[in-house]
Simulated scan of single mutants.
Amino acid sequence: MKIMKKLLFISLTTLLFISCSNDDDVQPESIPEAFEKGILITNEGPFNNGSGTITYISEDYSTVAQNIYRTVNGKELGNIVQSMGFQDDNAYIVVSNSQKIVIANRYSFKSVDSINTGLQNPRYFIGADGNKGYVTDWGDPNDNNDDYVAVFDLRTNTISASVSVPFGPEKMVAYSNKIYVAHQGGFGQNNLISVISGNSVESSITVGDVPNSMVVAGNSLFVLCGGNPSYTGNETAGSLVKIDLSSGQVSNTYSFGATEHPSNLTMDGTNLFYSLDGKVYKLNSSAIALPGTDIISGFFYVLQAKDGLLYATDADDYASKGSLKIFDLSTNQQIQDFQTGIVPGGIYFNE
Protein backbone atom coordinates (compact mmCIF):
# COMPACT_ATOMS: atom_id res chain seq x y z
CA MET A 1 0.00 0.00 0.00
CA LYS A 2 1.30 3.39 -0.96
CA ILE A 3 1.57 6.09 1.70
CA MET A 4 0.13 9.46 0.90
CA LYS A 5 2.65 12.26 1.36
CA LYS A 6 0.01 14.67 2.43
CA LEU A 7 -2.62 14.19 5.10
CA LEU A 8 -6.15 13.50 3.98
CA PHE A 9 -8.60 15.69 5.88
CA ILE A 10 -12.00 14.32 5.00
CA SER A 11 -15.51 14.36 6.38
CA LEU A 12 -17.05 11.32 8.04
CA THR A 13 -20.28 11.93 6.18
CA THR A 14 -18.97 12.36 2.65
CA LEU A 15 -16.26 9.82 1.91
CA LEU A 16 -16.12 6.02 1.76
CA PHE A 17 -13.20 3.78 1.07
CA ILE A 18 -15.03 0.90 -0.64
CA SER A 19 -13.76 -2.66 -0.76
CA CYS A 20 -13.09 -2.76 -4.48
CA SER A 21 -10.83 0.29 -4.41
CA ASN A 22 -7.26 0.97 -3.34
CA ASP A 23 -6.91 2.23 0.23
CA ASP A 24 -5.66 5.53 -1.18
CA ASP A 25 -8.58 5.95 -3.60
CA VAL A 26 -11.30 8.09 -2.04
CA GLN A 27 -14.84 7.45 -3.23
CA PRO A 28 -17.58 10.10 -2.89
CA GLU A 29 -19.98 7.92 -0.92
CA SER A 30 -21.43 8.09 2.58
CA ILE A 31 -19.29 6.76 5.41
CA PRO A 32 -21.12 5.59 8.55
CA GLU A 33 -21.29 7.97 11.47
CA ALA A 34 -20.26 5.10 13.76
CA PHE A 35 -18.46 1.83 13.19
CA GLU A 36 -20.60 -0.22 15.54
CA LYS A 37 -22.37 -3.48 14.87
CA GLY A 38 -19.92 -4.71 12.32
CA ILE A 39 -16.67 -6.48 11.58
CA LEU A 40 -13.28 -4.84 12.01
CA ILE A 41 -10.22 -6.22 10.24
CA THR A 42 -6.71 -5.20 11.27
CA ASN A 43 -4.41 -5.20 8.25
CA GLU A 44 -0.72 -5.49 9.08
CA GLY A 45 0.39 -3.58 5.97
CA PRO A 46 3.73 -3.90 4.18
CA PHE A 47 6.56 -5.19 6.36
CA ASN A 48 9.11 -2.52 7.36
CA ASN A 49 7.54 0.23 5.26
CA GLY A 50 4.17 1.84 4.86
CA SER A 51 1.34 1.66 7.36
CA GLY A 52 -1.15 -0.90 8.52
CA THR A 53 -4.86 -0.13 8.28
CA ILE A 54 -8.28 -1.14 9.58
CA THR A 55 -11.20 -2.24 7.42
CA TYR A 56 -14.82 -1.95 8.57
CA ILE A 57 -17.69 -4.10 7.27
CA SER A 58 -21.19 -3.32 8.52
CA GLU A 59 -23.29 -6.03 10.11
CA ASP A 60 -25.63 -6.17 7.10
CA TYR A 61 -22.65 -6.15 4.67
CA SER A 62 -23.95 -3.02 2.94
CA THR A 63 -20.96 -0.85 3.81
CA VAL A 64 -17.26 -1.60 3.48
CA ALA A 65 -14.88 1.16 4.53
CA GLN A 66 -11.11 0.91 4.16
CA ASN A 67 -8.44 2.60 6.28
CA ILE A 68 -10.97 4.00 8.71
CA TYR A 69 -8.49 5.33 11.26
CA ARG A 70 -6.85 7.56 8.64
CA THR A 71 -10.24 8.52 7.26
CA VAL A 72 -11.37 9.79 10.64
CA ASN A 73 -8.11 11.27 11.94
CA GLY A 74 -6.15 12.25 8.85
CA LYS A 75 -3.05 10.29 9.87
CA GLU A 76 -1.66 6.79 9.54
CA LEU A 77 -1.55 4.18 12.28
CA GLY A 78 2.04 3.11 11.66
CA ASN A 79 3.91 -0.09 10.88
CA ILE A 80 2.87 -2.94 11.54
CA VAL A 81 -0.73 -3.12 12.83
CA GLN A 82 -0.30 -6.38 14.73
CA SER A 83 -3.60 -6.68 16.57
CA MET A 84 -6.39 -4.90 18.42
CA GLY A 85 -8.27 -5.32 21.67
CA PHE A 86 -11.25 -3.63 23.33
CA GLN A 87 -11.94 -2.29 26.77
CA ASP A 88 -15.22 -0.46 27.37
CA ASP A 89 -15.61 2.15 24.59
CA ASN A 90 -11.99 2.11 23.45
CA ALA A 91 -10.06 0.13 20.87
CA TYR A 92 -6.38 -0.50 21.65
CA ILE A 93 -4.52 -0.91 18.37
CA VAL A 94 -1.11 -2.55 18.74
CA VAL A 95 1.39 -1.20 16.20
CA SER A 96 4.43 -3.40 16.70
CA ASN A 97 7.22 -1.98 14.53
CA SER A 98 6.25 1.54 15.56
CA GLN A 99 6.47 0.46 19.22
CA LYS A 100 3.16 1.95 20.28
CA ILE A 101 -0.47 1.39 21.06
CA VAL A 102 -2.95 3.73 19.42
CA ILE A 103 -6.16 4.27 21.37
CA ALA A 104 -9.33 5.20 19.52
CA ASN A 105 -13.01 5.24 20.36
CA ARG A 106 -14.17 1.85 19.07
CA TYR A 107 -17.40 3.26 17.61
CA SER A 108 -16.23 6.50 15.99
CA PHE A 109 -12.52 5.61 15.63
CA LYS A 110 -11.65 9.13 16.66
CA SER A 111 -8.19 9.22 18.23
CA VAL A 112 -8.19 9.23 22.04
CA ASP A 113 -4.53 8.80 23.02
CA SER A 114 -1.42 6.75 22.29
CA ILE A 115 1.07 4.83 24.40
CA ASN A 116 4.55 5.03 22.91
CA THR A 117 6.91 4.71 25.86
CA GLY A 118 7.97 1.52 27.58
CA LEU A 119 7.20 -0.70 24.59
CA GLN A 120 9.75 -2.48 22.40
CA ASN A 121 7.95 -5.08 20.31
CA PRO A 122 4.29 -5.17 21.43
CA ARG A 123 2.12 -8.00 20.16
CA TYR A 124 -1.35 -8.37 21.72
CA PHE A 125 -3.61 -6.44 24.10
CA ILE A 126 -6.28 -7.74 26.47
CA GLY A 127 -8.40 -5.77 28.92
CA ALA A 128 -8.63 -7.26 32.39
CA ASP A 129 -11.13 -4.90 33.99
CA GLY A 130 -12.14 -1.28 33.66
CA ASN A 131 -8.79 -0.01 34.88
CA LYS A 132 -6.19 -2.52 33.75
CA GLY A 133 -4.90 -3.95 30.49
CA TYR A 134 -2.09 -6.31 29.51
CA VAL A 135 0.18 -6.23 26.45
CA THR A 136 2.61 -8.98 25.47
CA ASP A 137 6.02 -7.74 24.33
CA TRP A 138 8.99 -9.62 22.86
CA GLY A 139 11.46 -6.98 23.99
CA ASP A 140 14.48 -7.43 21.70
CA PRO A 141 13.30 -10.34 19.52
CA ASN A 142 16.88 -11.63 19.33
CA ASP A 143 17.19 -11.76 23.13
CA ASN A 144 15.24 -14.58 24.79
CA ASN A 145 15.72 -13.16 28.28
CA ASP A 146 14.02 -9.76 28.13
CA ASP A 147 10.42 -10.64 27.18
CA TYR A 148 7.62 -9.26 29.33
CA VAL A 149 3.96 -8.46 29.71
CA ALA A 150 3.31 -4.77 30.24
CA VAL A 151 0.53 -3.89 32.66
CA PHE A 152 -1.34 -0.70 31.77
CA ASP A 153 -3.31 1.66 33.93
CA LEU A 154 -6.11 2.45 31.53
CA ARG A 155 -7.13 5.53 33.51
CA THR A 156 -3.82 7.26 32.74
CA ASN A 157 -2.73 5.20 29.69
CA THR A 158 0.65 4.51 31.27
CA ILE A 159 2.58 1.36 32.13
CA SER A 160 2.09 0.58 35.81
CA ALA A 161 4.12 -2.65 35.95
CA SER A 162 6.22 -4.97 33.83
CA VAL A 163 5.94 -8.73 34.33
CA SER A 164 8.98 -10.72 33.20
CA VAL A 165 7.95 -13.88 31.31
CA PRO A 166 9.60 -16.63 29.22
CA PHE A 167 10.43 -15.74 25.63
CA GLY A 168 7.91 -15.33 22.84
CA PRO A 169 4.68 -14.20 24.60
CA GLU A 170 1.84 -13.84 22.11
CA LYS A 171 -1.93 -14.21 22.41
CA MET A 172 -3.82 -14.08 25.70
CA VAL A 173 -7.18 -15.12 27.10
CA ALA A 174 -8.79 -14.06 30.37
CA TYR A 175 -10.56 -16.37 32.78
CA SER A 176 -11.58 -15.89 36.42
CA ASN A 177 -9.34 -12.84 37.04
CA LYS A 178 -6.33 -14.53 35.50
CA ILE A 179 -4.53 -13.97 32.21
CA TYR A 180 -3.29 -16.97 30.23
CA VAL A 181 -0.39 -16.13 27.92
CA ALA A 182 0.69 -18.43 25.07
CA HIS A 183 4.44 -18.48 24.49
CA GLN A 184 4.69 -19.30 20.81
CA GLY A 185 8.38 -18.45 20.87
CA GLY A 186 8.92 -15.24 18.89
CA PHE A 187 11.58 -15.92 16.27
CA GLY A 188 12.20 -19.28 17.98
CA GLN A 189 9.93 -21.90 19.53
CA ASN A 190 8.54 -22.28 23.03
CA ASN A 191 6.00 -24.56 24.75
CA LEU A 192 4.56 -22.71 27.74
CA ILE A 193 1.42 -21.01 29.00
CA SER A 194 2.08 -18.37 31.67
CA VAL A 195 -0.69 -17.72 34.18
CA ILE A 196 -0.67 -14.10 35.37
CA SER A 197 -2.57 -12.94 38.41
CA GLY A 198 -2.40 -9.22 39.10
CA ASN A 199 1.15 -8.10 38.37
CA SER A 200 2.99 -11.40 38.68
CA VAL A 201 3.28 -14.86 37.13
CA GLU A 202 1.37 -17.27 39.33
CA SER A 203 2.37 -20.44 37.49
CA SER A 204 3.31 -21.88 34.12
CA ILE A 205 1.88 -24.83 32.22
CA THR A 206 3.90 -26.91 29.76
CA VAL A 207 1.99 -27.66 26.55
CA GLY A 208 3.00 -28.73 23.05
CA ASP A 209 5.60 -26.92 20.98
CA VAL A 210 4.61 -23.53 19.51
CA PRO A 211 1.18 -22.79 21.07
CA ASN A 212 -0.43 -20.47 18.53
CA SER A 213 -4.10 -20.08 19.52
CA MET A 214 -6.43 -20.70 22.46
CA VAL A 215 -10.13 -20.80 23.33
CA VAL A 216 -11.98 -21.16 26.63
CA ALA A 217 -14.83 -23.68 26.69
CA GLY A 218 -16.62 -23.94 30.01
CA ASN A 219 -13.98 -24.74 32.59
CA SER A 220 -11.41 -25.83 30.03
CA LEU A 221 -8.73 -24.05 28.05
CA PHE A 222 -7.98 -25.57 24.65
CA VAL A 223 -4.51 -24.72 23.33
CA LEU A 224 -3.61 -25.48 19.72
CA CYS A 225 0.12 -26.05 19.29
CA GLY A 226 1.65 -25.98 15.82
CA GLY A 227 4.73 -28.02 16.68
CA ASN A 228 8.27 -27.17 15.63
CA PRO A 229 8.46 -26.58 11.86
CA SER A 230 10.75 -28.69 9.68
CA TYR A 231 13.23 -25.85 9.05
CA THR A 232 14.31 -25.98 12.70
CA GLY A 233 15.92 -29.36 12.16
CA ASN A 234 13.88 -30.56 15.14
CA GLU A 235 10.41 -30.99 13.67
CA THR A 236 7.68 -32.01 16.10
CA ALA A 237 4.02 -32.85 15.61
CA GLY A 238 1.28 -30.36 16.34
CA SER A 239 -1.06 -31.03 19.24
CA LEU A 240 -4.28 -29.93 20.88
CA VAL A 241 -3.91 -29.56 24.64
CA LYS A 242 -6.86 -29.42 27.05
CA ILE A 243 -6.24 -27.71 30.39
CA ASP A 244 -8.57 -27.99 33.38
CA LEU A 245 -8.83 -24.39 34.57
CA SER A 246 -9.89 -25.44 38.06
CA SER A 247 -6.64 -27.28 38.72
CA GLY A 248 -4.37 -25.60 36.16
CA GLN A 249 -3.32 -29.05 34.96
CA VAL A 250 -3.26 -30.58 31.49
CA SER A 251 -6.14 -33.07 31.31
CA ASN A 252 -5.65 -34.33 27.75
CA THR A 253 -3.24 -33.97 24.84
CA TYR A 254 -4.20 -34.98 21.31
CA SER A 255 -1.38 -35.32 18.78
CA PHE A 256 -1.46 -34.69 15.06
CA GLY A 257 0.70 -36.45 12.50
CA ALA A 258 4.48 -36.06 12.72
CA THR A 259 4.54 -33.43 9.96
CA GLU A 260 1.18 -31.77 10.65
CA HIS A 261 1.26 -28.19 11.95
CA PRO A 262 -2.24 -26.84 12.72
CA SER A 263 -3.13 -23.21 13.50
CA ASN A 264 -6.01 -20.77 13.97
CA LEU A 265 -8.07 -22.45 16.68
CA THR A 266 -11.52 -20.89 17.07
CA MET A 267 -14.84 -22.01 18.49
CA ASP A 268 -18.57 -21.65 17.91
CA GLY A 269 -21.02 -23.37 20.22
CA THR A 270 -19.54 -26.76 21.08
CA ASN A 271 -17.47 -27.04 17.91
CA LEU A 272 -13.79 -26.25 17.46
CA PHE A 273 -12.34 -25.21 14.12
CA TYR A 274 -8.72 -25.02 12.98
CA SER A 275 -6.55 -24.77 9.86
CA LEU A 276 -4.27 -27.53 8.58
CA ASP A 277 -2.59 -27.98 5.19
CA GLY A 278 -5.01 -25.82 3.20
CA LYS A 279 -8.18 -27.06 4.84
CA VAL A 280 -10.43 -26.06 7.73
CA TYR A 281 -11.32 -28.83 10.16
CA LYS A 282 -14.22 -29.17 12.58
CA LEU A 283 -14.36 -31.25 15.76
CA ASN A 284 -16.58 -31.36 18.81
CA SER A 285 -15.07 -30.06 22.03
CA SER A 286 -16.90 -32.57 24.25
CA ALA A 287 -15.77 -35.69 22.40
CA ILE A 288 -12.47 -34.84 20.79
CA ALA A 289 -10.88 -37.52 18.67
CA LEU A 290 -8.35 -36.28 16.15
CA PRO A 291 -8.34 -35.83 13.28
CA GLY A 292 -11.39 -33.65 12.82
CA THR A 293 -13.46 -33.54 9.63
CA ASP A 294 -12.35 -31.14 6.92
CA ILE A 295 -15.17 -28.86 5.85
CA ILE A 296 -13.67 -26.01 3.83
CA SER A 297 -10.65 -25.76 1.53
CA GLY A 298 -8.34 -22.74 1.50
CA PHE A 299 -5.09 -21.41 2.90
CA PHE A 300 -6.31 -18.84 5.40
CA TYR A 301 -4.29 -16.40 7.49
CA VAL A 302 -6.82 -16.02 10.33
CA LEU A 303 -10.05 -17.77 11.33
CA GLN A 304 -12.90 -16.64 13.61
CA ALA A 305 -16.14 -18.52 14.13
CA LYS A 306 -19.27 -16.81 15.44
CA ASP A 307 -23.02 -17.41 15.36
CA GLY A 308 -22.94 -20.15 12.75
CA LEU A 309 -20.52 -18.36 10.45
CA LEU A 310 -16.81 -18.80 9.80
CA TYR A 311 -14.80 -15.68 8.98
CA ALA A 312 -11.51 -16.34 7.19
CA THR A 313 -8.89 -13.94 5.86
CA ASP A 314 -6.73 -14.56 2.81
CA ALA A 315 -3.42 -12.65 2.74
CA ASP A 316 -2.92 -13.45 -0.97
CA ASP A 317 0.75 -12.68 -1.78
CA TYR A 318 1.33 -10.60 1.41
CA ALA A 319 1.99 -7.52 -0.74
CA SER A 320 -1.40 -6.94 -2.39
CA LYS A 321 -4.84 -6.38 -0.93
CA GLY A 322 -6.20 -9.35 0.97
CA SER A 323 -9.76 -10.48 1.51
CA LEU A 324 -12.28 -11.63 4.10
CA LYS A 325 -14.38 -14.62 3.17
CA ILE A 326 -17.48 -15.63 5.14
CA PHE A 327 -18.81 -19.20 5.20
CA ASP A 328 -22.16 -20.52 6.40
CA LEU A 329 -21.26 -23.38 8.76
CA SER A 330 -24.60 -25.10 8.20
CA THR A 331 -23.66 -25.71 4.58
CA ASN A 332 -19.90 -24.95 4.62
CA GLN A 333 -20.47 -22.73 1.60
CA GLN A 334 -18.97 -19.29 1.05
CA ILE A 335 -21.60 -16.57 1.23
CA GLN A 336 -19.52 -13.35 1.16
CA ASP A 337 -16.14 -12.10 -0.07
CA PHE A 338 -14.81 -8.64 0.78
CA GLN A 339 -11.55 -6.89 -0.06
CA THR A 340 -9.38 -5.80 2.87
CA GLY A 341 -6.04 -4.07 3.27
CA ILE A 342 -2.63 -5.69 2.96
CA VAL A 343 -2.14 -8.80 5.16
CA PRO A 344 -5.46 -8.99 7.07
CA GLY A 345 -4.21 -10.39 10.36
CA GLY A 346 -7.08 -9.92 12.82
CA ILE A 347 -10.88 -10.26 12.85
CA TYR A 348 -12.89 -8.46 15.54
CA PHE A 349 -16.59 -7.95 16.16
CA ASN A 350 -17.79 -4.52 17.25
CA GLU A 351 -21.06 -4.91 19.11
Rank of each mutant, 00 (worst) to 15 (best):
K2M: 03
I3E: 14
I3F: 02
K5I: 03
K5W: 03
K5F: 06
T13G: 01
T14K: 13
F17V: 04
I18Q: 07
S21W: 01
D24N: 02
D24E: 10
E29A: 12
I31Q: 14
I31T: 14
E36F: 02
K37F: 06
K37Y: 10
K37Q: 12
T42M: 03
T42C: 10
T42I: 04
T42Q: 10
S51C: 00
Y69C: 07
Y69E: 06
R70E: 14
N73E: 12
L77H: 05
I80M: 02
I80F: 01
V81E: 03
V81T: 09
M84D: 02
G85D: 11
F86W: 02
N90P: 02
N97I: 00
S98P: 00
S98L: 01
I103L: 05
R106F: 01
R106I: 09
Y107N: 13
S111H: 15
G118W: 13
I126C: 11
G127D: 08
D129A: 04
N131E: 05
N131Y: 00
K132R: 14
Y134Q: 13
T136S: 15
D143K: 10
N144G: 00
Y148C: 08
V149A: 11
V151M: 11
V151R: 08
L154M: 14
L154G: 03
T156M: 03
T156S: 08
N157Q: 03
N157A: 01
T158W: 04
A161E: 14
S162C: 01
V163N: 11
S164Y: 06
V165I: 14
M172N: 11
V173R: 12
V173A: 13
A174F: 13
N177T: 09
K178G: 06
I179F: 08
A182H: 01
G185R: 05
Q189W: 14
N190H: 13
L192C: 02
L192F: 13
I193D: 09
V195W: 13
S200C: 02
S204H: 04
D209G: 01
V210Q: 07
N212W: 00
G218P: 06
L224M: 15
G226F: 03
G227H: 06
Y231M: 06
A237D: 08
G238H: 09
S239V: 07
V241Q: 11
K242S: 08
L245P: 01
L245D: 03
N252V: 05
F256E: 10
A258P: 02
E260M: 09
H261S: 10
P262S: 10
M267E: 05
M267D: 00
N271L: 07
F273V: 02
Y274P: 07
D277G: 00
L283H: 12
I288S: 05
L290I: 09
D294K: 12
I295T: 12
F299A: 10
F300Y: 15
V302N: 12
V302H: 03
V302L: 03
A305N: 02
A312D: 05
Y318G: 00
L324F: 11
K325T: 09
D328I: 04
T331A: 11
N332F: 15
Q333T: 13
Q334P: 03
T340M: 05
I342N: 09
P344T: 08
G346P: 00
G346W: 03
I347T: 04
E351L: 07
